[in-house]
Structures are given as structure tokens and as C-alpha cells.
């Protein structure tokens, strides 16, 4: 008898757990239904099942945000559900490696940023080769970066900054969000462009780095507009320049590095889509067409504008343009990183 009542208690408890999980299910699937599962008419052949977009960085980060923005319109165009999956680790190389080893059938797609071109220089035994292990689908967006400093940092302009850091090279500190992060790469390029070697202070991500910059613990850094524009417009940090050939709409008063006299400092966090090498050409073409359609979507344009960026022009959302960009960037960063003597493993 005792055993029976015990098992009944167990059953009740499992029922409670079930109710809680059902509540979770309702919240989960209800929302997904409203937002994600866009299934339209298929065009025959590919795609016949859900497509997974692998983001090799954490959810909620800039790359993840961009991926989720384009996933919906792409899903609508392709007529299949797109599932975004985060596989972070080791500067994006874990997720990239997973996709490189995946079936080349077009159902596993990688979204990667500038890190694709820097990983071979930073990591040994990568397990994949950017140009050979992947088939490029197209570029997505190029996020501009900004050079910012603590607000009481003496230099008033980018030119002043270069003169100042040269004169005080042993005292100035340059923050970044960790080895291989966009802010680290931009900082390396700044040092090369300015011809100076500075003391770098790495942080675990942008948040803590920016916190110490606002708090005046470190002198300056270079980071994506996504992260800095709020602090810039509030006057919490001093901004010197934006690192793209054109000014950014959300920060109209900020000169470009070329205008400010340091044209060598040109860098953007470019994003692209990849599939494993060996994926059939017509599948790649379908993905690329869907990407183009998504980038032309006004909603995507608006959302990206809020991030301080914009979709690439249609001719860049192609495998050819993407391949050219990757080749050029691989060469650039191999040199910059070798010159700086950085090695992640």
C-alpha cells in the first residue's frame, strides 16, 4: 500500500512538471508561430526541409542579430523554415568547423563575419580552410567601426590622437573585447597605420571593455557602431572617426578616417553566408537569390539602419563578390596579424 501511494505522489509531481512545461511550450510555440515559422510555396527540389543557420557567436550579439533579421525574409523567399542555431566558441572557429564538416546539401548554412578571414592567421590546426572548405553564398552587411576614447582623454581629433599616442606610447592603453574580436583587429590596424606599438588591454567581450572606457580606466578603443553609438551621442565617450569610406547616418557629425587624415585605417565588420564546399550550384544560387531578396526588404533595411549599418549592394550578395572579398581580406589580415606577432594557439 505504501508503495502505491508513493508512486501516486510521483505521478502527481510529474504531472506538475508537465503542466509547467506545457506553460513553457505555450509561451514558446505561441510566440514562434507569430514570428518565425514562415513557410511559403516551395519551388520544387531544394528546400524540402528546415534549413539551419549556424551562428558561431552567442545569441543576442551583433552577428546573431543580423542573422535573425535576414532569416525571416529568406525563409519566405525559399519557402522553408529557417532555424538559427548558436554554436559559439574559440572566436567562431567551433561553429565554422561544424559547418565545414556538415553535409554539403544546403541545409546547413554558416553566418560568419570578418573572423573567417583572420582565423587562419590566429589559429593553427584550424581543421578547415576558408577558401577550400566552404562555398561562399554572398556578403550581407558591413558594420562600420568607430575610434572612441574616455571623455577626458586629451587628444581632440584623430590626427591629435596619432601624435599623442606616439609621444606617450608607453603610457597609453588600448582596450579590446578579446583576441580575434573586431575591436582587437581594428586596434591592430590602428597601430600599424599610426606606426606605433601600444599596451593592449583585453576584456571578456565588449560590455566590460566599454564599461572601463566610460569609467576612465583605459584610454581608448575601436569598436562597432552597434556598441558605441549610444555612448557617443550621450557624450559618455569621445569619438574620433568612423572607419568606413562613408559617414554613418546615425552619427552624421563623425568624420571618416580618410577625412580625419588616417586613410590606412579602413575596416568594417563584414558578414557573409557560407555553405560546405561541394554544395550543388543550383542550391547555392537559390540561397544567394533569397539573400538578395532579403537585403532588398525595406524592413531589413530599416532594422539595419538602426544598427548603424546597411545591407551590401545587390551585386555584392553573390558568391563571386564574396569570394573576392574573402581572398583580399585573408591576405590583408595574414600580414597585419603576422606583423603584430599575435597567435591564438
Amino acid at each position: 500500500m505504501r508503495t502505491t501511494s508513493r508512486y501516486r505522489a510521483a505521478a502527481r509531481t510529474i504531472a506538475v512538471i508537465g503542466v509547467v512545461s506545457l506553460a513553457a511550450a505555450c509561451a514558446g510555440s505561441g510566440g514562434t508561430g507569430g514570428e518565425g515559422a514562415t513557410t511559403g510555396g516551395a519551388t520544387g527540389g531544394y528546400p524540402e526541409q528546415n534549413i539551419t543557420f549556424v551562428v558561431p557567436f552567442s545569441a543576442g550579439g551583433p552577428t546573431d542579430t543580423v542573422t535573425r533579421m535576414i532569416a525571416d525574409p529568406m525563409a519566405a523567399k525559399l519557402g522553408a523554415k529557417i532555424v538559427v542555431q548558436n554554436a559559439e566558441g574559440a572566436g567562431g572557429t567551433v561553429g565554422a568547423g561544424e559547418v565545414a564538416r556538415a553535409e554539403p546539401d544546403g541545409y546547413t548554412v554558416l553566418m560568419h563575419h570578418i573572423g573567417m578571414s583572420t582565423a587562419p592567421a590566429l589559429y593553427k590546426d584550424l581543421g578547415y580552410k576558408p577558401l577550400e572548405s566552404f562555398q561562399m553564398v554572398g556578403l550581407v552587411t558591413e558594420v562600420p567601426m568607430t575610434v572612441v576614447a574616455r571623455k577626458d582623454f586629451p587628444p581632440a581629433s584623430l590626427k591629435d590622437l596619432v601624435t599623442y599616442v606616439k609621444a606617450n606610447a608607453s603610457k597609453v592603453t588600448l582596450a579590446n573585447a578579446g583576441i580575434g574580436a573586431a575591436s582587437h583587429l581594428c586596434g591592430l590596424l590602428f597601430q600599424t597605420a599610426a606606426g606605433v606599438k601600444l599596451q593592449e588591454v583585453p576584456y571578456e567581450g565588449t560590455g566590460p571593455a566599454l564599461t572601463d572606457l566610460v569609467g576612465g580606466q583605459v584610454d581608448f578603443m575601436c569598436d562597432q557602431t552597434t556598441n558605441t553609438s549610444g555612448q557617443i551621442s550621450a557624450g559618455e565617450v569621445k569619438a574620433y572617426a568612423v572607419t568606413t569610406p562613408e559617414r554613418v547616418k546615425s552619427l552624421p557629425d563623425l568624420p571618416t578616417t580618410a577625412e580625419a587624415g588616417l586613410p590606412q585605417l579602413e575596416v568594417s565588420v563584414w558578414h557573409g553566408l557560407y555553405v560546405p564546399a561541394g554544395t550543388p550550384q543550383d542550391v547555392v544560387q537559390k540561397l544567394s537569390d533569397a539573400l538578395k531578396a532579403a537585403l532588398a526588404d525595406q524592413k531589413v533595411v530599416d532594422q539595419m539602419a538602426k544598427l548603424g549599418t546597411a545591407p551590401v549592394p545587390a551585386e555584392d550578395a553573390t558568391p563571386q563578390a564574396h569570394k573576392a572579398k574573402l581572398e583580399e581580406q585573408l591576405a590583408t589580415w595574414a600580414k597585419v596579424i603576422a606583423d603584430a606577432g599575435v597567435k591564438a594557439s
Binding site: 543576442g60 542579430t65 535573425r68 560590455g207 566610460v214 553609438s229 549610444g230 555612448q231 550621450a234 538602426k306
Partner: peptide, 24 residues
Amino acid sequence: LPAHPVMALMVGAFIVHGITPGPN
């Protein structure tokens, strides 16, 4: 400025909704 990974994600939520996280 996020103090926890959950808050870093919330910064992402701010951005997606077109609110620039910051003192303003």
C-alpha cells in the same frame, strides 16, 4: 552597460527594437 550575459542579450533586444542602449 551590461553586467551579466542575460543583460548583454537584453542589449541585443534594445538594439533590435531600435533603441540605442546608453545613458540616453
